[in-house]
Design a protein around this nucleic acid. Structure first.
Lengths: 252, 252
DNA sequence: GATCATAGTCGTCTCACTGACGATAAACAC
DNA sequence: GTGTTTATCGTCAGTGAGACGACTATGATC
């Protein structure tokens, strides 16, 4: 209970980012290649130290901008324009999670629409969107040599926690729209759910559900045929953030 | 991105605890009186520094034991014996949240059955169970002079976040049983929901719902009349942790 | 231009579950 | 006994989800 300033051990505090997007029907996360020991050459989550005068959320938003150019939204605001949803995920502080010193990492979760190629400090070869399934396939039997090695530090755990958060949160919130561009169709939104949950959903029931939930979607009046087939109405995210009743994730 | 050990600012890392219980039909939190500046004499959440060789969860469990004598459970295990549910809540790291230095606090949420009086380092007058409604009533117009002042630091925000977590989590998990003793009746469990949500629930529908959810409750065979009225069956928590379909919180 | 493939949209039917609420049961206080 | 309290069982109507049929509007192919 004592706050004697000489009595507490010093920690380094970092933010690590789980940046998720949906590309080619797969849930993908941003990974950067480590340029230094430890885990040199291995893939890791983007992140960095929290500065002395910086809030944790500010630090996460700064790192996100540095890695992706994305502008972060406050958690309550639905993703519009070119912004990403950003929220705190959890904090990881095992002694020994970093072999060099005692580091406590405050992980954040960011959800972004499909983006152009990532840039890590301008060096594209050191950053990539990788399917989370691939990043979490630890054993390294995949044919892609680059991702055969598990993520550095405890980042596999952090990524898994972030994915699980995203999977559960799109059930009861309108967060899935954060994966979509400003204007999107019901089918595009459905493909987001299908990619994040890894299941197939009935297009007719999905359409009835999302268009029937007040505040979830607002029609823009336009239509598009970019998915082929019959033209689909365009929507943008409505003001509702909590869905009641929630979307039901098929299970069992 | 650089990990130059001389390039990061040092932080103090603490754990703060939101310890909730249900007493006399009210959701209560453990509060301790601060013995030192800043906020000397004000009520605060229990907490303390994370030690150099300690995991965050270990630190939270240690603080919990020091303040209450409670033995913490792993998050996956339902509360049995004399243990409490413990899970990480969120991390608070505003510069300036502690006027003396840069402190990052990893808040944890603990749920406990109704306990004997708290003990803070053996001094009972410096620890108490207070209704959360009272602790969060910042303005200080209450007639109880002791709680007229808001909680120290950003602890009102932390407490509010913890209460909100508990309120939402008993919807879709069996966590409400963590507020009950090992053996309890359906009526006692219902009073937990009523206290946490601050609503009245229909006893008949509640009974149908909880006894009809597989894995939620297992009858022990015994009965009790400790609540008065007709004897009620005793149950203990079943193995299920996720309730599907969830309990529905009345709203609107 | 007819046909086909693809996606979107509207409807219908059934079943499960909930909320409202009546009725009965088993204890205690008087 | 009578009244009070709490527990427990039943009924009924309304809501919403899953399964799935039917129709529509576009581009691609022959």
């Amino acid at each position: 209970m004592s706050y004697d300033p000489s009595a507490f051990p010093p920690f380094a505090v970092t933010v690590d980012l789980v940046v998720l997007t949906v590309r080619r029907h797969a849930l993908c996360a941003l990974a950067v290649r480590r340029g230094e020991a430890p885990y040199k050459g291995r893939w890791a989550l983007p992140g960095g130290f929290v500065r002395a005068d910086e809030d944790l959320t500010q630090a996460a938003a700064r790192e996100l901008a540095e890695e992706t150019g994305l502008h972060a939204h406050a958690p309550s605001v639905p993703a519009q324009d070119n912004g990403a949803h950003l929220e705190q995920l959890a904090t990881y502080g095992d002694p020994g999670r970093d072999p060099r010193m005692r580091v406590v990492s405050v992980a954040h979760l960011a959800l972004a629409p499909d983006l152009p190629a990532p840039r890590a400090g301008g060096d594209a070869s050191n950053a990539r969107w990788a399917p989370v399934e691939e990043l979490l396939r630890h054993e390294g039997y995949g044919r892609d040599g680059e991702t055969a090695a598990p993520l550095a530090f405890d980042h596999a755990q952090i990524l898994a926690d972030g994915v699980e958060r995203a999977r559960s949160k799109i059930e009861y919130s309108s967060l899935a729209t954060a994966f979509c561009p400003t204007e999107f169709t019901v089918g595009e939104l459905r493909r987001v759910y299908e990619a994040v949950w890894g299941v197939a959903l009935d297009p007719r029931n999905f359409h009835r559900k999302v268009t029937g939930t007040p505040g979830f979607l607002v029609p823009t009046g336009g239509t598009t045929t970019r998915q082929g087939g019959r033209p689909a109405q365009l929507f943008r995210a409505g003001g509702a953030t909590l869905l009641n009743p929630p979307m039901l994730r098929p299970e069992v």
